[in-house]
Design a protein around this nucleic acid. Structure first.
Lengths: 210, 210
DNA sequence: TCAGAACGGAACATTATGTTCCAGTGGTAG
DNA sequence: CTACCACTGGAACATAATGTTCCGTTCTGA
């Protein structure tokens, strides 16, 4: 009966809208809000009932995404398995979660709220732990830093061909390639690793609305 | 005196406009045409005197870019140096030329003209030769194909931090990482390589204008 | 001196899009 | 059974963005 109730319908729409928004904005960060409504199969007012503005929706999406990423990293940091296994599995899971994709592609388009900001240290710290453990074990080259992980995941998530399954397959194809590069202890790679500041600075483009 | 003449000024503007357009559209593929004029330090009419429309300008930019890429690939294909050296040098040069960057980021925004289309086989064929030679020499893993090269260069060119020099440095950082991955002959990398069709299909989004 | 090529940039037309508004619907409390 | 109202769809509105045109101005070259 909860399935037929008006409230159940509303609750289902909550999820439908979020899912649609994720899909739409992942495909096109500049997409209009009407596309989200269309994709979700609801009217525009269903959106505005839930979010004060587009900015609000984007913020919610990104905060969720970063929280998901932080969760994944934290979980990996706690794992007791082999350092290389943990690292690889972490990278794969993070890639699949498309967590960074949204936040980066939408960077600068919305105000960065407190909750989002609060997730950043957690994301950074956990990633660092996973990475450091792998480096300490000698299975990841020493000249890799946390910023590298961010940039690599971002790069991978820019890969985009028509089909979603195929896109994912290709992303993992290049992840593997990168992992092989990371794994090896060959010559130094050029340039210092990206700093956390460099990576975060892209969020600062947003014109602060009233 | 050619430096002061009206015609000389016009000729200089030709170049200024192209340079500005490259810079602007590389940074933001959706940039308005007025930004290009501003950056070039000319008025809008100076633009429209040279190009019938924005579409024309974009087409010109991309055609140039792909021709440049094809030139680089062709030159590498002719080189007699060591296969691995040739391959690495080709990748570095292609990356610096930012050749693919423009064409991909603008894909679907302009009509694909004949001249552009004519460059594609040349680009593909030369890239294939460089790659095949490296594979035959056993210095590049066998499961890499031409489409991989395209996608990798594209990925690298999506890297973007504020500073241009730094951006370039980071791109080369990850190119090196990828090269290490390519070089190694470890386990298979997952998924079939991207096909030429998959890569080209992104140009087809353009709504054909009258 | 003067015709006209080249130019700057305001003005215009059009489109895109965030947001509001209102009438309709159906579950539900009383 | 009925009246209420949360929830919704989507048209309408206001606004901002931007491609293109137009016109008055400048300055070269003959």
């Amino acid at each position: 009966m909860a399935l037929n109730g008006r409230k159940a319908q509303a609750a289902r729409n909550d999820e439908l809208i979020l899912e649609a928004a994720r899909a739409v904005f992942t495909a096109d960060p500049a997409a209009p809000i009407s596309t989200v409504a269309e994709r979700a199969g609801v009217g525009i007012s269903a959106l505005y009932r839930r979010y004060r503005s587009k900015d609000d929706l984007l913020q919610k999406l990104c905060t969720d995404a970063i929280r998901t990423y932080a969760d994944i990293a934290e979980s990996a940091a706690k794992s007791q398995a082999e350092p290389w296994e943990v690292f690889v599995s972490f990278m794969r899971t993070a890639l699949d979660a498309k967590a960074g994709s949204l936040s980066i592609r939408l960077a600068g388009q919305f105000r960065v709220g407190e909750e989002l900001q609060a997730q950043l240290p957690r994301a950074f710290e956990s990633t660092r732990q996973v990475l450091d453990r792998a480096k300490a074990a000698g299975v990841v080259r020493a000249d890799i830093e946390v910023g590298d992980i961010s940039l690599m995941l971002e790069q991978l998530q820019t890969i985009e061909v028509g089909d979603e399954a195929r896109t994912n397959q290709l992303r993992h194809r290049y992840l593997k390639l990168m992992l092989d590069g990371l794994h090896a202890s060959r010559d130094e790679i050029p340039g210092p690793a990206p700093t956390w500041k460099e990576i975060g600075s892209r969020y600062e483009q947003a014109v602060t609305p009233a």
